[in-house]
Design a protein around this nucleic acid. Sequence first.
DNA 1: CTGACTAATTAACAATGGTTAACGCGGTAT
DNA 2: ATACCGCGTTAACCATTGTTAATTAGTCAG
Lengths: 198, 198
Amino acid sequence: MSSSLSPVLKKSLSIQLGLPMDRLEEFLCICVFEKLGKNQLVYPGKRCFDRLYFIVDGAVRTFYYTDMGEEISYLLQVNGDFFGDYESFITGQKSRFTIQVMVDSEFFYFTKSSLLTLVNREAFWLGFKSRIADLAFLDAKERINELLFYNPEKRYLNLLTKNPEIVQKIPQKYLSSYLGITPQSLSRIRKRLAAGAD
Amino acid sequence: MSSSLSPVLKKSLSIQLGLPMDRLEEFLCICVFEKLGKNQLVYPGKRCFDRLYFIVDGAVRTFYYTDMGEEISYLLQVNGDFFGDYESFITGQKSRFTIQVMVDSEFFYFTKSSLLTLVNREAFWLGFKSRIADLAFLDAKERINELLFYNPEKRYLNLLTKNPEIVQKIPQKYLSSYLGITPQSLSRIRKRLAAGAD
DNA sequence: CTGACTAATTAACAATGGTTAACGCGGTAT
DNA sequence: ATACCGCGTTAACCATTGTTAATTAGTCAG
């Protein structure tokens, strides 16, 4: 699918993934482009999540159901983010997550088996695989910091500054779940902030 | 340092790291054994944390200082855990963390450069490096779940059941920081639980 | 346009955590 | 012994969140 991405996007992917352009092209050859409409589910079904997605343009929500059938929004992501269940991707176990497309979106994805094909072909790709793991780790760590060191109000403010797009694109009930609070609390926080910003 | 570990420990390391015994021996050749006493700092100084440690026996606390000079306990770990600043290890940037030995402890560690030596010698070790990244990710993800889905009381209970050793070995002020609450709150939670357990 | 459904807000009350301050306990140094 | 210090606990008060329920706003299909 190498041809469907803009040169600008390729350049930034090259940096993000730590791949020189020729390697990036090689990588994109194993990738599959996909368009999904709002509210569609990415790779639905309770099975192993054997692929990783990149958001060319759009927004997704990764969630799962608690024992009581309640939805918990684990991640919210927009343009330029990778998503998928990396744990399931690594371990090969069934994923508990469902991923929902929040606005009409464009993605590409690659499967574990196609990545392993690259790895088997040339040791170079093992280093790339390792980098993917590192990126997933760094994301996860940032999320820990966020949850551990900031209260809900600060978390909301951080989201507003770091990712205003998400606040625009994603309904509040999902935002609140992502922030680890109830919709009512988010509503109150927004009211407080609006009052304080006179 | 291959000879200093018990066969039992080697066996469990072999599983944990996904290395057959002969490869494990090879790996242990790049490792350095180290004993540190209570309250000593592991690899002190504000520089890049270019090594990863394994706790043979003991307990450590990973913390850092906020802008206001307040200590925040990021991680508490005991026997069988790996620690270090994996982010610094990956990126080569200076670490913000300090790691304190909580009880007299025995570790071994390996440096990034010695790991890269293995990787350069044989492509096999690239897969191992990747596995380390995966393990770091899975740990981080578990911590996110913990913080996102459970309130402080439940987090304390989880710690009690999953890691009673930590609750024994680590002073409460660090436990509370790890749980993301104040020492007073932890004290109240313990009181609530003691009252409820009649 | 209307009705029906969902989302967001608001209110009232309870539960919980943060803050500040005081107290007691167990070490340690003098 | 005593004075001190760090630690854990407790208390009182305040701020924030959760819970439940009602209301309002918004969306979509017909």
